[in-house]
């Protein structure tokens, strides 16, 4: 590419923008490794002190386990139901497909505050506040649209003729799923499960209403302490959450790469 004036200033702009975009993430990670008892940048000395506080404090531990438990429940429900729904969208011929899809994406469009209050309103009388399975189900509704969006494009890549062939060779409907569709869509299913987990793991507003004292999640505990006083341990917890995001993105990149390698080997066979 020739470096004309506009291109060069665009490059400069993009560089600055990227630095600003990464700045908050990087700063939090650096602060998390600071040693002193208050937030200071740059830290005077570095240690793992605040990570030790995070992993040593039973209340933070409980919050971590609540988060993991709820996110796992939400991830399984959203991925399984989302997979079947995406399959129905790709293979089924229903009327008003686009309308139905846009309805199923509503949980990420409607402000979470409204959804959370409505769920909370119902949870009180039913004694469901603090129930991890219920919170997991509620999170699943928010994770479902993400699973759908990922799997729709992934299932579109599965050749319908392979399914027809399996059926005509005597495979059952179940066999078509377990031996053809799921293996072929597996990278997409993994990706969607990862992002469904992350969506629930990072969800704050629904948890804020539904968690009660019993099942406080990590984001809820961060929220509560940000309202009282900014403790340095929050930096360590935030760095941990950034780490979880990093792991998810890394795993997703691996999955994508594996899929591309497999697609390449397919075309070689052909």
């Amino acid at each position: 590419m020739t470096t004309t004036g506009p291109t060069r200033s665009l490059s400069a702009y993009v560089t600055v923008a990227c630095l600003v975009l990464m700045l908050p993430i990087v700063i939090v990670i650096i602060l998390a490794f600071g040693h002193q008892g208050y937030l200071k940048f740059p830290p005077e000395s570095y240690s793992l002190r605040w990570f030790a506080t995070f992993f040593g404090d039973p209340r933070w531990q409980r919050a971590l386990w609540s988060s993991v438990l709820i996110a796992s429940i939400a991830c399984v429900i959203a991925t399984v139901l989302g997979f079947f729904a995406a399959y129905a969208f790709v293979r089924g011929d229903m009327r008003a497909k686009k309308l139905l899809l846009s309805f199923m994406l509503l949980p990420i469009i409607i402000p979470h505050v409204i959804t959370a209050i409505a769920m909370y309103f119902l949870s009180g009388p039913l004694k469901l506040v603090g129930n991890v399975v219920w919170i997991g189900l509620c999170h699943a509704t928010v994770a479902l649209p993400i699973v759908l969006l990922i799997l729709l494009s992934s299932l579109q890549g599965v050749d319908v003729n392979l399914e027809r062939a399996a059926l005509s060779l005597g495979s059952s409907r179940f066999g078509v799923f377990t031996k053809v569709v799921i293996p072929l869509a597996f990278p997409g299913i993994l990706s969607s499960a990862l992002f469904a987990f992350l969506a629930s793991f990072d969800e704050l507003i629904i948890s804020l209403f539904l968690a009660g004292v019993r099942s406080e999640t990590l984001p809820v505990r961060i929220w509560n302490s940000l309202h009282l006083q900014v403790e340095p341990v929050i930096a360590a917890v935030s760095a941990f959450l950034i780490g979880v995001t990093g792991v998810v993105l890394l795993l997703d990149a691996f999955v994508r790469q594996a899929r591309q390698a497999r697609l390449a080997s397919y075309s070689n066979v052909r």
């Binding site: 079947f84 729904a85 129905a88 969208f89 293979r91 949980p107 119902l122 509704t141 759908l148």
Partner: peptide, 24 residues
């Protein structure tokens, strides 16, 4: 054979009806 794939959407619709639209 494939048009009956539509039924697979039901569990997800049920979840949204019971946990999302219903409460609202």
């Amino acid at each position: 054979k494939f048009s009956d794939a539509t039924v697979f959407i039901l569990p997800a619709v049920l979840l949204l009806a019971l946990v999302f639209v219903g409460p609202l």
